[in-house]
């Protein structure tokens, strides 16, 4: 359980990057945090594992206050982060060493490390690349290794800070599939993203704008607030936009999140005519 209690943050001499944000994320949730460039979503992400500390308010991870330095290590073991640029996150010259890097630093016995590394690489489908050099991998493969490195720490929460932004469609699909699997296994996943179609796959969407939280709810209720989204510099995902376009033209379709659902709704609608 992660709780933000009236959290504000500001970078040097700038406007508040986060402004009085309160929310809580329960264990096992799959949450998307969306917002325009500069909306504060990455700043928020960095508060979840004490990379940034609130200027005002409190962040609690399983009851541990991130502002207390005594808690930092325990919090970082609970909450793993994967960042945008795959090239900035891999530190060694062999994939499996990279995955072992975190647990090694925790002082875990080598037999246990071996087991964790194998499990983590299997979880992201990269077993076959264990002995390869990271720089020979594609962007999507590098991101999968970065995720494996986090999984080897046995985190309860995985935060992906625009982890798909620099990937091609295949790499993006692979990462999203892994996210789905981890979520099913009970890991809390928090995805920071600008892709509304990715947000549509989550159980809950939190929308930030100018450091404020402007919407929080399941995709169907968030996407029904087109005006607020547009004001926040965001757009509807293509499928939802298509449905909205048809409704604006006089149809009355329910809000649909994927192509099959929308096709069925249009078909039902046209059968009734």
């Amino acid at each position: 359980m992660i709780t933000l209690d009236h959290v504000s943050y500001q970078y040097d001499r700038q406007d508040a990057a986060l402004n009085d944000v309160s929310l809580s994320i329960a264990d096992g949730e799959l949450v998307a945090i969306v917002g325009h460039n500069g909306s504060g979503k990455s700043t928020l992400a960095k508060h979840l594992n004490a990379l940034l500390l609130p200027y005002a308010g409190k962040v609690l991870v399983d009851g541990l206050d991130t502002s207390d330095p005594e808690n930092t290590l325990a919090i970082r073991q609970k909450v793993g982060m994967v960042f945008q640029n795959p090239d900035n996150q891999l530190v060694t010259t062999i994939v499996e060493e990279d995955v072992a890097f975190g647990p090694e630093n925790l002082g875990i016995p080598s037999g246990e490390i071996r087991r964790r590394v194998d499990e983590a690489l299997a979880a992201v489908g990269m077993e076959a690349f264990a002995k390869k050099a990271p720089h020979m991998l594609s962007g999507g493969q590098k991101q999968r290794v970065a995720i494996a490195g986090m999984l080897a720490m046995n985190p309860q929460v995985l935060v992906l800070d625009e982890a798909t932004a620099m990937l091609d469609p295949q790499g993006r699909r692979d990462v999203l599939e892994i996210v789905g699997r981890l979520h099913k296994k009970g890991i809390t996943v928090i995805m920071i993203t600008q892709h509304m179609s990715e947000a549509a796959l989550c159980d809950r969407i939190i929308v930030l704008s100018g450091g404020h939280m402007v919407l929080d709810g399941p995709p169907r209720s968030v996407f029904a607030q087109e005006d607020i989204l547009r004001k926040a510099g965001l757009d509807l995902p293509p499928v939802v936009r298509m449905g909205a376009l048809l409704n604006a033209g006089g149809m009355s379709l329910p809000l649909c999140l994927d192509v099959e659902e929308l096709a069925e709704a249009i078909w039902q609608y046209s059968c009734k005519m």
Partner: peptide, 8 residues
């Protein structure tokens, strides 16, 4: 357009 928000 890589990495930009929808309005960008």
């Amino acid at each position: 357009m890589a990495g930009l928000d929808p309005m960008g």
